[in-house]
Design a protein around this nucleic acid. Structure first.
Length: 500
RNA sequence: CGCGGGGUAUAGCAACGGUAGCUCGUCAGGCUCAUAACCUGAAGAUUGACGGUUCGAUUCCGUCCCCCGCAACCA
């Protein structure tokens, strides 16, 4: 049994209706950098991600393709699972327990049903309950799309694809969650924990939203119309609508509720990853702020579980000039294309340092190339070559024991990945300056100064090793290569990053 | 009066009640260990507009203009 402190981080589960895109890559990479940094800082890390696979869009899509829904989601989920190693995500790293959950996994389904049943039970005896109740609900249905439409999908109250057809209003009786009962407790949570949502501007946003008043939301659909979902406990006419299904993954992933029974024992996974960590750190896009920081937290309260630890909210990746990426504008970046042309670390670098940790940022191939040449090829790549060349020819292998810098861990603790990178690159720049100032390459040629030059080169190696240590979190592959060079006292056989 | 973010050098960003910084690009010089790389220096900004508070405002307050998201199931 490890004595290390546990740390639990998760991404939002992407809905498999769409193909993996740059936003998913961004979130994976960010969460991965935090996970690896925590590992470096001595934590035992649980890293969760996966896919959200139920619901009408997936069901319809499978029907269109004439596929069994399960077959369809198997394929769709695999696409997400497969890109993870290509992005350098820690699917197989010591001290990082990686988990890929699918909402169609049988243990997740069991967990979601148990969660529903628990919330129902708690609500039925609560003063402000019931928490789950039935109510008539009218959905807007587009006959052309054969799909239910949400308000945000409508243009002038009509389907954007079938604007000439009137939407059908279909009333059905659904289960609702009594979100409104949790307004006060949510506001208390936000007030008590100023770091609950990062960045602070997003905390203000969700606070303002909750203060305006909450509407109960629908949490089931009629199975007769849409069978592709988790069955509601004790009512086979209904399946769960996304919330009580997908959001529960953050606890089903760590063994809830099975391990709650075992919570009295020390070894329960839920106890370790939820109770001892103070909850999960959740990455999400800014469009998911409400779901993660309000709805899910209210659900946890209803289940009498402690809230998440922190919600870290990403901005969006945009095209040039802050314009939304879209196929018609041709400014969509496919992360796999970037990885193919450069490599995973190059993409990770760009995501970590050139894209704002919390605000929208543009991503263009021009900017990418510029940043790549300046900071990877000319920066860390070139620095490694110049130091190792001198080392290889003049010194014996140096043993180093670099330590993690406080500036770095401080930045990571604030989820400020960009600042953490800035720190590392300031070290890179400092070594370049030092070499120029001290000119060991000149001193080597003169007998009287040679000894001093050798000491200096050993110092440079130590500096490089320190950089490599920090890069384990950001550019794991590159870090490994640098550490190998240092160990073997050899300059890289091929440049770490070829100039483009 | 729905909510939020933003407007700073060519571009992308940072900062802050007290000399407005960084990266890319441009120009000049240096170096030769290194991937035409690296180092030093220079040019380049009435900090969106107008008012207010202040000894002092890019920063705080007010009004306005412009851009961009969100507005209950898109990272």
């Amino acid at each position: 049994m490890s004595s290390k402190k546990p740390f639990y981080i998760t991404t939002t589960l992407p809905y498999v209706n769409a193909e993996p895109h740059i936003g998913h890559a961004l979130e994976y990479i960010r969460a991965d950098i935090i996970a690896r940094s925590k590992k470096l800082a001595g934590y035992d890390v649980f890293f969760n991600t996966g896919t959200d696979e139920h619901g009408i869009k997936v069901y319809q899509k499978a029907k269109q393709l004439n596929l069994d829904p399960q077959k369809y989601v198997d394929q769709a989920s695999a696409k997400f699972r497969e890109i993870l190693p290509l992005l350098g995500i820690a699917t197989n790293v010591v001290d990082i327990q990686f988990n890929f959950i699918r909402t169609t996994d049988s243990n997740h389904i069991k967990s979601a049903q148990a969660f529903w049943a628990l919330v129902k039970k708690n609500g039925d005896k609560a003063k402000d309950g019931p928490y789950i109740y039935k109510k008539n609900y009218s959905i807007k249905y587009c006959v052309g799309c054969e799909l239910e439409k949400t308000e945000s999908e409508l243009v002038n109250g009509r389907c954007s694809v079938h604007a000439l057809q009137d939407l059908e209003i279909i009333a059905e009786e659904n289960y609702f969650f009594k979100f409104s009962a949790f307004q006060k407790r949510l506001l208390e949570l936000y007030a008590d924990r100023p770091d609950f949502v990062i960045p602070g501007s997003r905390l203000n946003e969700i606070k303002a939203f909750v203060e305006r008043g909450l509407e109960d939301f629908s949490i089931s659909r009629l199975a007769s119309k849409m069978p592709w979902g988790v069955a509601v406990p004790d009512d086979s006419d209904h399946v769960m609508y996304v919330w009580f299904d997908a959001l529960v993954d953050y606890i089903s992933a760590i063994g809830w509720p099975d391990d709650v029974v075992a919570e009295k024992k020390v070894s329960g996974a839920f106890k370790k990853w939820w109770v001892e960590t103070g909850g999960v750190v959740q990455y999400c896009g800014k469009d998911n702020l409400r779901q993660q920081s309000a709805m899910w937290q209210a659900m946890l309260m209803a289940a009498e579980l402690t809230p998440s630890k922190t919600i870290v909210v990403d901005g969006f990746v945009t095209g040039d000039g802050g314009i939304k990426m879209s196929k018609s504008l041709g400014n969509v970046i496919n992360p796999l294309d970037v990885v193919k042309e450069y490599n995973a670390d190059a993409l990770r670098y760009y995501v970590a340092r050139e894209i704002s940790p919390f605000e929208d940022s543009p991503f263009t191939l021009e900017k990418f190339k510029e940043a790549y040449n300046a900071n990877l090829a000319n920066g860390i790549g070139n620095l490694t070559s110049r130091i190792m060349k001198m080392a290889e020819a003049n010194i014996k292998p140096v043993k180093t024991k670099p330590t993690l810098a406080k500036e770095f861990t401080d930045a990571i603790n604030c989820y400020d990945i960009k600042s953490a990178c800035d720190f590392v690159w300031s070290k890179i720049s400092a070594l370049d300056v030092l070499i120029q100032k001290e000119e060991p390459f000149k001193k080597l040629k003169v007998e009287e100064t040679k000894a001093g030059a050798i000491i200096l080169i050993e110092e440079l190696i130590k500096g490089l090793a320190e950089i490599a240590l920090h890069l384990e979190a950001i550019l794991p592959e590159t870090s490994f290569k640098i550490q190998e060079c240092i160990k073997l006292n050899k300059s890289p056989t091929v440049p770490l990053f070829m100039r483009k």
